[in-house]
Design a protein around this nucleic acid. Structure first.
Lengths: 251, 251
DNA sequence: CGGGCCCTTGAATTCTCTCAAACAATGTGG
DNA sequence: CCACATTGTTTGAGAGAATTCAAGGGCCCG
């Protein structure tokens, strides 16, 4: 288990949640807002690199990312790791564990994280009293599924270059939507090992593939991060279109 | 668009749904049952090979498989196809489209299918009046996500032999749970092309890989189907464990 | 200053793909 | 009933992609 800085009580009040100002998210009714405000039992801060949720565990909590980057992954017995998806502000962590008992994947912080903490046991309350929020939760689960579909298509059928292009375009567009990077600024806080473990490639081949993208001036690879220069160019290589989802929910 | 035999009104009454007799599914309260019975607007029968849902479409319907096999897939512009998952009795089709507007993948019948038909627009009713069923829908979405995670791990990190072993073990166990095959009988109604498109391999290499499994007497490959001899042996090769989910929901 | 982590590169090996060809089973029309 | 087209499986061989092994360099931190 990894280290955690601390777990203080709620600092950010839901009524003043900074995420509500972002374009992509939908508005809450005052009823929904007060429910969520009460549903949130605290806030958790973690170091970069710490493990937030562990495969096999029965976590008592459910989190929404308030700030920072995370990733979900699974590992085989001999250590081979597959990164499944990345989490950014507004993303829900641990829903699977809440519904199905045991976590089937782990979650690790890519940067220092700020998480809103919810009690797993109280999710029934949400379904019983807040049908619109329940719908939102299902929407979120369904969206995650759609993204996994796209990842699976990528890993299964795209070439190494296309895969890398897709991943970086995806991360850039997603980060952009929640202001983690700007249109022409900001870096993705990942290493080439993360890219390799997401694409299902070795680190050596990943390195050579990223070099090709860098040589075409689509990205700049920095010390431990990636600056995306031309996300649309990347998306084009991958034959991928980003669907701009406005009005998306979060809890 | 593919051909369809016909689309008659409900034949099978929910109160006498044959799926309710299977071990893995949970019981309904009479209230839930009457809601679902009313929620179901008809029954649809399709030929093997027909397309049930198309990527990009705004389907007005949502289906539960009552009988038969199906698969979900996505294709790239140049025709490369990735099969995402397989559908069997009790599985929900088209939820993503219902929640997010547009279908992001297609669904095709692997055998003749019998589907329960629901109206997309009425899903809000379900969330508003049936919190337990709403929870079930979320559970189902979440479970699909967990399966996709496992597939992604497989395609990303397992060797060709491990991948094939995992897939066949998965299909066999899943089919077994809904009586589509017996413990020592029944075949998976797939071609090697389906296996290839699921594993992200070429058909030639898939053929050679399946041959290895057949030579070890783990499977028998028939004309257009696969007979699994030793599902546990396959699962062992893949370092995979099937989680027996008893009491799982379906709509 | 040493150790650890990350990026980079070359070379040999292994895996997987494409191309090509054949055969078996099925179905159709004459 | 046979000729023929179609679909699915099988095999070999050469080409291409990706892996492992190996090694070196840069940077940060204790």
């Amino acid at each position: 288990m990894a280290s955690r800085k601390n777990g203080t009580t709620a600092r950010t009040r839901c009524e003043q949640c900074p995420l509500r100002d972002f374009k992509p998210f939908r508005e809450f009714s005052s009823d929904e807002l007060s429910f969520v405000s009460n549903f949130k039992t605290g806030e958790l801060t973690t170091d970069s690199g710490s493990t937030v949720l562990v495969e096999g565990a029965h976590s008592a909590h459910l989190y929404t990312i308030l700030d920072g980057w995370a990733f979900r992954y699974k590992i085989l017995e001999d250590g081979r790791r597959q990164i499944l998806n990345y989490g950014m502000p507004g993303d829900l962590l641990g829903l699977q564990g809440s519904l199905m008992g045991e976590m089937q994947h782990s979650v690790e912080a890519l940067t220092p994280l700020t998480l809103c903490v919810f009690e797993r046991d109280r999710i029934t309350e949400l379904f019983e009293n807040q049908p619109t929020l329940a719908y939102d939760v299902t929407w979120i689960a369904s969206r995650e599924e759609a993204i996994l579909d796209e990842h699976l298509l990528s890993v299964g059928r795209r070439s190494a270059l296309e895969r890398a292009a897709y991943l970086l375009a995806f991360l850039q567009k997603k980060a952009l939507s929640v202001n983690l990077v700007g249109e022409n600024s900001g870096t993705l806080p990942i290493t080439q090992q993360h890219v390799a473990d997401t694409l299902g490639l070795s680190i050596v081949h990943t390195n050579k593939t990223l070099r090709k993208l860098a040589n075409r001036d689509l990205i700049h690879w920095l010390d431990r991060g990636c600056e995306v220069i031309d996300a649309d160019g990347l998306a084009e290589i991958a034959d991928w279109e980003f669907e701009v989802s406005t009005n998306r929910p979060f809890i």
